[in-house]
Amino acid sequence: MRRIGITGGIGSGKSIVARLFAALGVPVYDSDSRAKGIMATDLGLREQLLAAFGAETYTPEGLLNRTHLAQRVFGDAAQVALLNSLVHPRVGADFEAWVATQAAAGQPYILKEAALLYESGAYRQLDRIITVFAPPAVRHARVLHRDAHRSAADVEAIMRQQLSDEEKLARADYVVYNDDSQLVLPQVLALDETFRQG
């Protein structure tokens, strides 16, 4: 069973592309949502996050306080690195367990969607990488339209923290262009056929 990664900068449309693969019956591991689940349920990780980022990391009801956590780490490379060092290994282990269930089900290939595929080291668990590409100006406009809580400065700061488009494109095995000038579905169908052929 082939393991295919899918990544792209904020606003590139990687989640939309992943949903198209899912609509074709491809199992998709959403790293972001799985990480949130692990941060909510893994008691050992919860203790480490509380120790590292303070009592406000979780609400009085025991829910992850994403706003507090974002405020604590945003713009501070050392704090981001600390958070990632705590969360990414657990997501990696969760992914391996998930892959085992998919392999047992006889899937020809699976996808792992992750914004920080290279930055987290998760690319090492994968056979091939798809990068979803859209020009920075298009991505910026999409995020501002989609996320009312983000400012233009927020979006620019997030873009600066992610690996550059040039680096992602250079490291990609496949590129899906989601730049509003090409249809995405035919690109996904072609890749699906390639992956199913092995």
Rank of each mutant, 00 (worst) to 15 (best):
Y58R: 12
V17I: 05
T41C: 15
Y177A: 12
R160G: 10
E47A: 13
A141G: 14
D180F: 12
L63Q: 13
S15G: 14
T57Q: 02
E96K: 13
R66G: 08
I38E: 10
R19C: 07
L116E: 02
S33Q: 13
A78I: 07
S31T: 01
E113W: 09
A97D: 10
I129M: 12
M159W: 15
I38M: 11
P89D: 01
T57R: 08
F195C: 13
H88S: 14
D192H: 09
Q48R: 14
D165M: 11
A81Q: 08
R3P: 01
A35V: 03
R3S: 00
V132I: 00
A172N: 04
L86Q: 09
L86K: 06
A77H: 05
L116C: 06
S33L: 05
Y29K: 02
G9F: 08
T131F: 10
K14Y: 00
G37C: 05
T194A: 15
D179A: 10
R146F: 03
W98Q: 03
L185M: 11
A170C: 12
A134D: 14
L189V: 05
L191E: 03
I110E: 04
V80F: 06
Y174E: 01
F21E: 00
L191R: 07
L191D: 03
G11C: 07
G62R: 15
R171C: 04
E119M: 03
R72L: 08
E113N: 12
L69I: 04
W98S: 04
D76S: 13
G106Y: 11
A152P: 01
S120P: 02
A70V: 11
Q187W: 11
Q71L: 12
A172L: 02
T41N: 15
G106V: 06
V175N: 04
Q107G: 01
G92C: 01
A78D: 11
Y118M: 14
G121V: 12
Y109E: 10
R90F: 01
W98I: 04
Y174R: 06
S12G: 09
W98P: 03
N65A: 09
F53P: 01
L49H: 00
L49Q: 11
A153H: 12
D147C: 06
E47M: 12
V99R: 07
P89C: 05
L163F: 09
A18C: 04
P135C: 05
H149S: 10
H145I: 13
N65H: 09
D76C: 09
R128F: 09
Q79V: 07
Q187C: 10
A137I: 15
Q197R: 14
V87A: 02
L24P: 00
M39F: 08
Q71T: 11
A97F: 01
L191G: 00
Q71A: 12
G92W: 08
L69R: 02
A190Q: 14
R66A: 01
T41V: 15
E156I: 13
L183P: 02
A148V: 05
V73F: 10
T67V: 15
R150Y: 12
L24N: 09
V132N: 00
